[in-house]
Design a binder for these strands. Structure first.
Lengths: 248, 248
DNA sequence: TTTATTAGTGTTAATTTTACACTAAGCAAA
DNA sequence: TTTGCTTAGTGTAAAATTAACACTAATAAA
């Protein structure tokens, strides 16, 4: 029995990666040439796919991430569902959909609802190469032209990531297990596009029990090696204190 | 030409109302009797409906709110999409779906994805009566048994409302246009289930330019009448300063 | 051994937060 | 018209938090 897609339901994943310096997004090349070899379509899209029968949106998202990166258990957060009736109606997108139908048999409804997720990964863990379905990292500050409504999805994902990162310690999903305080600070600065004071930042971190210093230093760096730290979700859950700060 | 439903897509609305004292949710009665008049089903559900062809989820939600309350332009926020494959599979829910099909012709797919919204209204504006499809307000702290996965949806809605209310001045959507500071404080206390210090609260509010005192007082109260205030979204947008507070 | 580079550290002033209790104004009842 | 009831409205001082700011330490490479 063949797995069947649900023609009017898809999932799109905005995969964020941090390389120690910049926040990046994983994008897929989308190209189509005419008979003479000229590009009809030459842009990028997010990674996405249809939901399969019997599958939840979350399962579909995990499946897509596994397909693209090869990893299971990537941090995922559903942030919005896009249901505009003209999501796929631009001429380019219509050509692409027709092409997919002819070449892969994939049947796409006129009105496709997309449930969107963002994922957080340490860029160093996943370096795409030729085997990886034409995907590559692009800095969030310099995103190329995107097909469908993926620009909008991408913007909403970033907004949502920031929103979320203010409340919960999800930054750590962008870092290696053992990280330096400078890496942590850089990640936060990259997410929010801000600059923080190093000394004040470090004092704050020292007060927090779930960011735990190791008896271990960086190796092979051409400067004073930094101490390494780990984040403990467990300690976080036990010691977090919700303090209410209203918007006024 | 008849309007057609999309069989595998629905919208559920968690309608929150504030009565000056407590946070409430609007629920719909769901009853079904057998031949002898005994209840087969006697519980409650959120207000919801299928998405129609050519409609976005947001439009469907506005349509549902209009149907239920008679009002347009209610504050709405999409917060999650529920796609569990067993969302509708409990025996009661199956009986109900069969009943709907026989009696209204409504065809519901096995796997229905529901895009969920919460709405905020001033309870005083909408007082349901017999004409209102068996809906009634229930205090959030005392919710009766709910059908489908609506308990879960309701909990996630509350979590999401709190999350959202921390960042943006949406409390005002629960209040009449002109409100007292005590009403505002009560609304915040109801949302977050906390108590605030009156003097500190008022000092904070005075610093804020977008909560504007009127030259007008309450009438007909058996105590010192309070000053009335309005909220200006306009002033808010112009004067808000995003200050970053990290979770640590 | 020198250079380049990033790690790591303390103090002070300004601001914000917290805790706390009495008088004022209107209506209703006597 | 007086009294009582009820909620509105107000200030201060101590404690905690934030913000601003510059130099020494440790390593690898030249």
């Amino acid at each position: 029995m063949k797995t069947q897609v649900i023609p009017n339901l898809s999932v799109d994943c905005v995969i964020f990666g941090f390389d120690g310096l910049e926040l990046n997004v994983l994008l897929k090349e989308r190209t189509l040439k005419d008979d003479k070899g000229n590009f009809i379509i030459n842009d990028h899209t997010l990674t996405g796919h249809h939901v399969l029968k019997g599958e939840t949106a979350e399962q579909a998202a995990q499946r897509i991430l596994k397909d693209v990166t090869g990893f299971d258990n990537i941090f995922l957060n559903q942030f919005h569902t896009f249901s505009e009736t003209d999501r796929l109606s631009s001429p380019k997108d219509q050509i692409w959909i027709k092409y997919l139908k002819q070449n892969t048999g994939l049947n796409i409804a006129d009105h496709v609802i997309s449930i969107a997720f963002y994922a957080l990964v340490d860029t160093k863990k996943f370096r795409p190469d030729q085997q990886h379905q034409n995907v590559a990292w692009y800095p969030v500050k310099n995103i190329p032209e995107l097909g469908f409504d993926h620009k909008r999805i991408m913007e909403k994902a970033l907004e949502s990531l920031r929103y979320h990162a203010k409340h919960e310690p999800i930054v750590f999903e962008l870092l290696p297990e053992k990280f330096t305080l400078t890496e942590l600070q850089n990640a936060i600065e990259a997410i929010f596009d801000i600059k923080l004071d190093k000394r004040n930042f470090r004092r704050k971190i020292q007060q927090v029990k779930y960011i735990i210093p190791l008896d271990e230093k960086q190796h092979g760096v051409a400067h004073k090696p930094a101490n390494l730290f780990i984040f403990s979700w467990d300690v976080y859950e036990r010691t977090k204190k919700e303090k209410l700060i209203l918007p006024f």
